[in-house]
């Protein structure tokens, strides 16, 4: 299938601002998916609340737009009830790392097979530009008019520390690279987290004088590295380990109980 076949074209135009990177994240995801053998009936895309989470509505799969921060536990219920589904979570930096942070670390700990793609634009866009747990120190936001005194999470390290068996970071300035790592995340038999650096020229960019969308993409080019260059934000796959997956573990438990063996 072509990636465009996965779009609900009758639901266009989308709500994202001109220059927003979210469409680029979405197209990288769909291109990765199109290269794989998933039937659209067997794909479920779950999202929370925020700009990123509107993505689910534009996709011709089983799509669920849930409450703020809770996409992961909704997805967990769907995956456990129907493990044969490919369950993908589309979420943002506020949705996944602030209000939904608890669910993120626990899903990582369980190693349940969910592909979680975090659209990180460093800001709450839907509510017009408040700082998030991924807004860098002393950057500006409408709720940090004198600079953000908070320090941000490193989402990659957080997910790794929480036990995620696949952790990666991509950027909209590197769409082919992004497609590749999302694809590997989709192939991973376990919990996968892909943080994607994406530009919000309307709020984060404007507030912090970062210029146009093109300027922000250039900023990404100048400040990230896929080869581990010193002083740059690293892009790539940081964790990729085969570990027992949660649904498989549960299936094994059910089988053991059915055979009357009890705990082993």
């Amino acid at each position: 299938m072509k990636y465009k076949d996965f779009l609900r074209k009758d639901k266009m135009p989308h709500i994202w601002c001109p220059g927003c990177g979210h469409g680029m994240v979405l197209s990288s995801f769909l291109r990765a998916l199109a290269k794989r053998e998933y039937h659209p009936d067997k794909v479920a895309v779950i999202s929370g609340i925020g700009c990123s989470s509107r993505a689910s509505g534009y996709l011709n799969f089983n799509t669920l737009h849930t409450t703020h921060g809770r996409a992961i536990p909704f997805a967990t219920g769907i995956k456990m009830a129907k493990p044969e589904l490919k369950v993908v979570v589309l979420t943002g930096d506020g949705d996944s790392a602030a209000i939904g942070g608890n669910h993120l670390i626990h899903a990582a700990r369980r190693n349940i097979e969910l592909t979680v793609i975090v659209f990180n634009n460093n800001i709450y866009g839907m509510t017009s530009g408040q700082y998030s747990p991924l807004t860098p120190h002393m950057r500006l936001a409408t709720t940090a008019p004198y600079g953000n005194i908070d320090y941000p999470f490193d989402l990659v390290k957080l997910a790794e520390g929480a036990g995620a068996s696949f952790v990666a970071r991509g950027a909209t300035a590197q769409p082919r690279h992004l497609e590749k790592i999302i694809g590997q995340g989709l192939d991973h038999n376990g919990f996968s987290l892909i943080e994607v650096i994406t530009q919000c020229p309307t709020y984060f960019g404007r507030k912090n004088r970062m210029g146009s969308a093109v300027d922000m993409l250039q900023w990404q080019r100048d400040n990230t590295s896929t080869t581990g260059k010193e002083g740059k934000i690293p892009l790539g796959i940081f964790v990729q380990e085969e570990r027992p997956e949660y649904c498989a573990n549960y299936h094994h438990l059910v089988k053991t109980v059915a055979e009357g063996k009890g705990s082993e």
Binding site: R70, F74, G77, A81, K82
Partner: peptide
């Protein structure tokens, strides 16, 4: 399926997800 979740918010989210799956 039995799952002990990280909190009650996740608990109700998970059962809604399961019900959506039938």
């Amino acid at each position: 399926v039995f799952m002990q979740m990280e909190d009650e918010i996740a608990s109700i989210a998970a059962i809604i997800g399961a019900s959506i799956a039938g």
